[in-house]
């Protein structure tokens, strides 16, 4: 690998671009191919290879593929997965920490300034806005999970309304079965269809018998993880 290529990879990763490093295994020649269409380097990229590599980037799946120039190793670089937590409540504290360790970029959204503070969420991106304002610029995509934790329909409902038609790979909402049934009713009245509302994991989390905030965070992160990899298995 040329130092110049490595520097480029590191800079593009820092800039959170979506790209792949393509290595022709027979010769060691390399190119960087960006999802937005550009490429540069020594490997000849024909349209078949480009489309294979673009699929790999979208599926976040590195691997070895056959190309016209022999076997190619495609190493995908995508920005970190994101977790958007609505509600800077007690459960959000261990969840933000655990998700960070698991590799997520975590953002906590809560319009109540005394909840979302740096003291309670050190190192986490905090957004002190109502979710209906905060969500659209965050643009939840297929590498984003969203969890609402406030129980408060004034905060949770606008958040759900803003993400139910997004590409987010996971949507979860804290609350008992009863709370969730009421939530389903409200969202139905607001014009959301059963398919859209059915995307919500509620009550949130895998059933682990979790009691403490940290245990509930484990059950939520476990469900997010399983959903992420279920999608990968479907894509494969």
């Amino acid at each position: 690998m040329k130092q110049q290529i490595l520097k480029r990879v590191l800079a593009d990763r820092e800039a959170k671009r979506q790209f792949a490093l393509v290595t022709r295994l027979e010769t060691g020649e390399q190119s960087i191919l960006y999802l937005d269409g550009a490429d540069e380097g020594e490997v000849e990229i024909d349209s078949a290879l480009r489309s294979t590599v673009e699929d790999a980037i979208r599926d976040d799946r590195s691997g070895t593929v056959a190309g016209a120039g022999g076997d190619m190793f495609v190493e995908v670089f995508n920005p970190p997965l994101r977790l958007l937590i609505v509600g800077a409540v007690h459960i959000a504290q261990p969840l933000a920490r655990m998700a960070s360790v698991a590799g997520y970029d975590v953002t906590v959204i809560d319009p109540r300034g005394s909840f979302a503070t740096d003291d309670r969420f050190p190192g986490v991106t905090l957004v002190n806005e109502w979710p209906d304002e905060a969500m659209p610029p965050l643009d939840p995509d297929r590498r984003t999970a969203v969890v609402t934790l406030t129980h408060d329909p004034k905060i949770d409902d606008p958040a759900l309304a803003a993400v139910l038609r997004s590409d987010a790979f996971y949507i979860g909402a804290l609350g008992s079965r009863k709370t969730h049934a009421a939530r389903v009713e409200r969202l139905t009245e607001s014009g959301f269809g059963a398919d859209e509302i059915g995307r919500i994991h509620g009550p949130v989390g895998l059933s682990l018998g979790a009691v403490s905030p940290a245990e509930i965070a484990v059950s939520i992160l476990a469900q997010v993880t399983r959903t992420l990899h279920d999608k990968e298995r479907v894509a494969a």
């Binding site: 990763r13 970190p80 920490r97 960070s100 360790v101 050190p122």
Partner: peptide, 14 residues
């Protein structure tokens, strides 16, 4: 993540 979060993202050996 920032170092003061007390955690480090270790899922990728970036």
């Amino acid at each position: 993540m920032a170092a003061d979060a007390g955690v480090t993202a270790i899922s990728k050996d970036d």
